[in-house]
């Protein structure tokens, strides 16, 4: 139990230690801690915001996808309808064309047949005239008897 110079030294050491802690230790530990705390809070807030944004983006992507799918469906349906239409159109056009061709062919045939008949008739007429001329042994005046001959030919 005694008091001596140690007391004064102790107080001086203590004062220096307080000064050192106040100057170099406390602010340099607490400052960065608070800064880190702030950054962590910021990071968490940013993460929350990012998550929210992601959710929103996902929702919008889904709606865009749905819309696109719907539109694609519509387009496919339209295309199918168009294809059917074109096919029907082509089929009917082809049928018509066929019918037209058949009709034209019939016409041609009829025409050819008529012409052949005509030629045949003329030739038969000519042969008949030639035969008659031979029979009569005289030249028939073709011009004079043309009306008669063509009438005859028409009868064939």
């Amino acid at each position: 139990m005694h008091v001596n110079l140690t007391l004064v030294i102790q107080m001086a050491v203590f004062a220096v230690l307080i000064w050192f802690t106040m100057k170099f230790v406390w602010p340099m530990i607490l400052g960065p801690m608070q800064e880190r705390e702030r950054r962590i809070a910021q990071g968490l807030a940013a993460a929350g915001k990012g998550e929210e944004e992601l959710e929103r983006a996902r929702a919008s992507a889904e709606s865009i996808l749905r819309e696109a799918r719907e539109r694609a469906g519509v387009i496919v349906e339209q295309a199918q309808r168009g294809a059917t239409e074109i096919l029907d159109h082509a089929r009917s056009a082809a049928t018509q064309e066929g019918q037209r061709l058949v009709a034209a062919a019939h016409e041609q045939i009829e025409f050819d047949a008529a012409r052949a008949k005509e030629q045949l008739r003329q030739q038969v007429g000519a042969i008949a005239v030639a035969a008659a001329a031979k029979l009569l042994e005289r030249e028939i005046d073709a011009r004079a008897h043309e009306a008669l001959l063509s009438e005859f030919a028409a009868q064939l």
Partner: peptide
């Protein structure tokens, strides 16, 4: 005597300063 300011406790001073340096050094 109870109070004598010419006496120093070397051990107390030594360990106080040693521990002060330990504290200040590690925290610094």
């Amino acid at each position: 005597s109870l109070v004598n300011f010419t006496v120093i406790d070397y051990d107390t001073v030594f360990f106080s300063v040693l521990l002060a340096v330990l504290f200040a050094g590690s925290f610094y």
